[in-house]
């Protein structure tokens, strides 16, 4: 992490409510301004606070998004502004723009998910679900821990097998990978048995067990939560009254800066600014 952010300090419940506000609205409201705001805040948040992922990851993401944007007009021929004809069917500007909007929204959601996995650490998940469903909490935290562990173990086993095998990468047989797989599976099974034993000996199944947590609900949690929940209610009411109805097909309706829409954009942008607040 390169910057400080309130999302790091706040209570897990606040964190959960905040992400459950930003991500669904980015997905569900197909309005270019909402998408643009979400994407912009996502990019600034990732660059300034979380820190950029590897360049290859960014490039893969960009390639995927471009492909998604281009693929839409190839399959959807709706729209009145014809760019050119492909196999006798029109390729239209509207469906191209719709593809761009959709891929921008998907990109924004991906950025928020990167941020979510960064701030929502295992201890926070255990704290959130621990008192409600202890089994689910243990399962979640174990599974989440297993993924990086599997990668680490896989790398180690491959390195060890390379020493036995002695062939170059392109000449390896299926047998090589099968033996790696088999070793990995048995190691993981052994590990999970060990973990289960140690959890039992610590009294995970005891009745009336209390949970220790280092998180406290502070004043800024209250403020954040109130603003987020108010904005969420507001957006649901505005959406029910016809705000955020941006139409792409068959012709683009154009931006509508009516009071309802302006309120919705403001409600979304205000909550988004919290991710940059120190």
């Amino acid at each position: 992490m390169i910057g400080r952010c309130i999302l790091d300090r706040c209570h897990p419940l606040t964190l959960l409510v905040w992400y459950m506000y930003v991500i669904p609205i980015t997905v569900l409201v197909h309005d270019p301004i909402i998408t643009a705001v979400s994407l912009l805040f996502g990019i600034v948040h990732i660059i300034m606070i979380v820190g950029l992922p590897k360049l290859s990851t960014v490039l893969y993401c960009a390639a995927f998004m471009t492909a998604a944007a281009i693929a839409n007009p190839l399959f959807s021929h709706t729209g009145v502004t014809v760019l050119f004809f492909m196999n006798g069917l029109p390729v239209t500007l509207e469906s191209l723009l719709y593809g761009v909007e959709m891929s921008a929204a998907a990109c924004a959601v991906m950025l928020w998910c990167v941020s979510l996995t960064h701030f929502m650490t295992t201890d926070k998940i255990t704290m959130l679900f621990g008192s409600v469903t202890p089994k689910l909490a243990v399962l979640l935290s174990l599974t989440l821990r297993f993924i990086p562990m599997i990668r680490e173990k896989h790398r180690n086993i491959i390195n060890a097998q390379k020493g036995f095998d002695g062939r170059s990468e392109s000449r390896r047989t299926l047998k090589f990978y099968l033996s790696v797989y088999s070793a990995l599976t048995s190691q993981l099974l052994e590990d999970s048995v060990e973990i289960a034993d140690s959890m039992c000996s610590r009294g995970i199944r005891l009745k009336g067990r209390t949970f220790y947590s280092e998180f406290k609900i502070r004043r800024y949690d209250g403020v954040m939560m109130t603003i987020t929940l108010l904005a969420m209610t507001g957006i649901i009411i505005l959406k029910a009254n016809g705000a955020g109805e941006f139409e792409f097909y068959p012709f683009i309706t154009g931006f509508d800066f009516s009071v309802y829409n302006d309120l919705m954009y403001a409600a979304f942008a205000i909550v988004c600014t919290m991710c940059l607040y120190n």
Partner: peptide, 10 residues
């Protein structure tokens, strides 16, 4: 497989 035409050509 794909035949591209401009609007005029089409």
């Amino acid at each position: 497989c794909v035949n591209f035409e401009t609007t005029e050509e089409h």
